[in-house]
């Protein structure tokens, strides 16, 4: 697995964080341009997928540990935020924080079991897939989680309940979460932890020889990854006030979480966001164009993924960098 060469090593703080703030500011203006609920709803969903993908990207993009079951973290976050409120009467914001923490704990537990037994590559992917399925079946069967009818958060539209009448408010909260994840990813990229994580992706034995405790670094990575994806799940439940097992632990979110970084750029800060906006923008456009042809948007999804892997193995961002590099060398020649 070779990822892109990171950006130049001693970038200033402005060069490192400036683009993130600029993107956040531009996106934040969107609700001022449109008040259409459909557009805002699609944008909230795209940001949510970007957040879930941002979590996957920490472990998969930077660490090279491909999970096929990030639904387990998404679903844990979603169910936790719903059940902590409906069953235990916890405040919505506290429940949100707790849901992220519980997601992280599930990540640490799965990471401990898989990495302790030395699972790599496709074996690790299969184990994460199996965990997600087990969680889905249990959530679907257990009366405590509401079984097949799912779990509801009581509608009580007040800001102190993390419930807002305006979709724009949810949009800004989702954007704030994504921005926080972008900043955290950039900080990670510029830290020893980030350097070690990428070293493990590139060559685990060489990393060990250089003093990297690969087990600990991978465990930290899956914990952070799970926390971010759990935040996306918790936000999802809080936004729709409902979860069931097939939404929370379904393969759809495992696929989305890995698809958006792959399309956008594996192991890059902006990859998941670019991928989510590109895929969901395209999905919305095809839905509008081929509205009466069911599944047309899904077929397009598949075609796009094939194209992305064939022509842009480092994602949209990698393609962009390559074109830029190509032009500058041609100019130099």
């Amino acid at each position: 697995m070779t990822g892109p060469v990171n950006t130049s090593p001693r970038t200033s703080l402005l060069a490192a964080y400036g683009p993130i703030l600029a993107v956040a500011l531009v996106l934040a203006l969107l609700p001022l341009a449109t008040t259409a609920n459909t557009v805002l709803n699609a944008m909230v969903l795209a940001l949510l997928i970007a957040l879930a993908g941002q979590g996957w990207n920490i472990l998969g993009g930077y660490g090279g540990q491909f999970s096929f079951g990030h639904a387990v973290f998404f679903g844990t976050g979603a169910y936790a935020v719903a059940l902590l409120q409906s069953r235990l009467g916890l405040n919505a914001y506290l429940a949100f924080g707790a849901a992220v923490a519980i997601g992280a704990a599930v990540g640490a537990a799965i990471g401990f079991l898989s990495f302790r037994s030395g699972l790599r590559g496709s074996y690790f992917a299969l184990v994460t897939l199996a965990f997600a399925e087990v969680f889905r079946i249990v959530a679907n069967a257990s009366p405590w989680t509401g079984g097949a009818s799912g779990a509801l958060i009581k509608l009580d539209m007040r800001p102190e309940n993390f419930q807002f009448a305006s979709r724009a408010t949810f949009f800004w909260i989702a954007l704030a979460l994504v921005t926080a994840a972008l900043v955290a990813t950039r900080m990670m990229e510029r830290s020893r932890f980030g350097a070690y994580l990428v070293a493990i992706r590139e060559n685990e034995d060489a990393a060990k020889a250089l003093g990297v405790n690969t087990f600990r670094v991978k465990l930290q990575a899956i914990t952070a990854s799970a926390a971010v994806t759990a935040a996306a799940g918790a936000f999802y439940a809080q936004y729709f006030l409902f979860v069931d097992a097939n939404i929370a632990f379904g393969t759809w979110i495992s696929v989305e979480a890995l698809l958006v970084p792959i399309v956008g750029g594996l192991g890059t800060v902006f990859g998941p966001l670019i991928g989510a906006l590109a895929l969901h923008g395209l999905a919305e456009a095809t839905k509008a164009l081929a509205g009466r042809l069911p599944g047309a948007d899904l077929a397009l999804y598949g075609a796009l993924l094939v194209l992305a892997i064939a022509f842009a193995p480092n994602g949209v961002q990698g393609l962009f960098n390559r074109l830029k590099g190509g032009f500058s060398t041609r100019r130099a020649a």
Partner: peptide
């Protein structure tokens, strides 16, 4: 040889340097 193929020479060596230099600038 087991290089970190996707990284630059500087980043490759910095992984080793991080063992005694936790801060990124020091390692680089």
């Amino acid at each position: 040889v087991q290089p970190f193929a996707g990284l630059s020479v500087r980043e490759n060596i910095a992984v080793g340097a991080h063992l005694r230099h936790p801060r990124r600038d020091d390692a680089l």
